[in-house]
Design a protein around this nucleic acid. Structure first.
Lengths: 233, 233
DNA sequence: CGCCAGTTTGACCAAGATCAACGCAAGTGG
DNA sequence: CCACTTGCGTTGATCTTGGTCAAACTGGCG
């Protein structure tokens, strides 16, 4: 659920204006992140392996070290919904409930750090900045959710795919060639579409030269501007 | 954005397991909420009046005292998306950004409390429980967003309307007769549908006796169970 | 080489959008 | 007090987008 813990320039989560007393722990601006290193346990998962399952006790959270994971939920009738993809540096699994409401799986082989909730609590007592940091991540997630709801509620298939490609390229710092580790099915479940529609839209983008598709998991962004203005024309 | 500040039984926002030190301020379990009363300013708005606009400086947050508000965003091409409705007791407007990304309007005549960000910061320094409380609300919001994304991405029109009616009835403690202050258009923009579809689905529910519609803004829930199982049959 | 999983493409279908009336109650002004 | 307007809501006819079903393609891999 949480993104980019430890990434560049986190603000204080209250609009960057300092919700807490900035004097309390000015020195420890990055300490909480370093401190976490001490309590995290490195774990590896292979493709499609479950990191945690819907219904599991929710007693820890994770940070992706390497690879890509998806947070998803399967409905009784087979419909699947993917809440988010997390890449290197992204955090996930910090829930409000005691039980997992979603499951998390490895999209490809991944390495993650697992932080137990109990240890995190202890750290928070020692360093108030960590709480701020976690809060900030939650607000980021909320902002992401807002954007995504707009996408799901009001955007066309082409707009959804275009904004997905742009979003992933920004998060992965891929200016021109984009690596898409997840399957078309994953993308479809993330965008509220079907595999076929995702495939068709991508083929259409390829046809009019907006993107190139050297391999299904490698997208060449030939015209970012065009992708950004889909639906405005 | 935030719900039910000061409502019954808030947990500590870290899965109810005590992220912080429960011993620090056990005494002040409800103090932060009471303390807020001191810094809040009461304000009234009439129907369709703007509480804040997309682009305004984001220097405060609100709690609904009486009435209903909607948090929405208007796209350049006229498409509108409603992020949430807030009823008495719900909080909204606590953003991560310095500028509003959404606007908030009164659905009907409302009274809200406005809390300045700066004053909230001060309070947080005096009472750590308030931070916990705000964090908890954010996590609630995130959970709500997750549910809503599932609805927007994978549910049929009938399922969306049914789950909307049940959701509102729970939040407003309306067992049998439900007051819907917002217009069909608002509901449509919240559910990612059109006015006509919302209207048609409601008429269909009425036809098969699931609900009654004495007036457009008054819904009688005749068969809650049926509403809950729409789409499972 | 042939299988297998994932992807693409095509033909057809249906849910919901769009376009267009119509209904209805609450103002509004003569 | 009653036409007339106005703003919603409902209903119907038709169209479009994206879903469904089915088949063909592609690149590993045993």
């Amino acid at each position: 659920m949480f993104k980019q813990l430890g990434a560049s320039g986190f603000n204080d989560g209250f609009g960057g204006q300092g919700l807490g007393d900035p004097g309390i722990a000015l020195s420890g601006r990055l300490d909480p992140l370093l401190a976490l290193e001490g309590i995290g346990a490195r774990r590896s998962f292979s493709r499609d392996q479950e990191i945690y399952a819907d219904g599991d006790p929710s007693d820890s959270w994770y940070k992706v070290v390497l690879g890509t994971i998806r947070v998803s939920k399967l409905l009784a009738d087979g419909r699947r919904y993917i809440g988010e993809f997390c890449f290197s540096g992204d955090c996930f699994g910090l829930d409000t409930a005691n039980e997992r409401v979603f499951s998390a799986e490895a999209v490809c082989d991944v390495v993650v750090m697992r932080y137990s909730r109990r240890a995190t609590e202890r750290l928070i007592n020692e360093n108030a900045q960590l709480a701020r940091c976690l809060y900030d991540m939650t607000l980021r997630d909320l902002a992401h959710a807002q954007t995504h709801m707009m996408l799901l509620g009001r955007m066309t298939a082409a707009e959804r795919v275009a904004s997905f490609l742009l979003d992933v390229s920004e998060r992965r710092d891929a200016t021109r060639v984009l690596d898409l580790p997840m399957s078309r099915h994953d993308i479809a479940d993330y965008l509220g579409l079907t595999v076929e529609t995702v495939s068709r839209v991508m083929s259409a983008f390829k046809r009019d030269g907006t993107i190139g598709i050297p391999t299904p998991h490698r997208i060449e962004l030939r015209d970012r501007a065009a992708l950004g203005t889909i639906g405005e024309a």
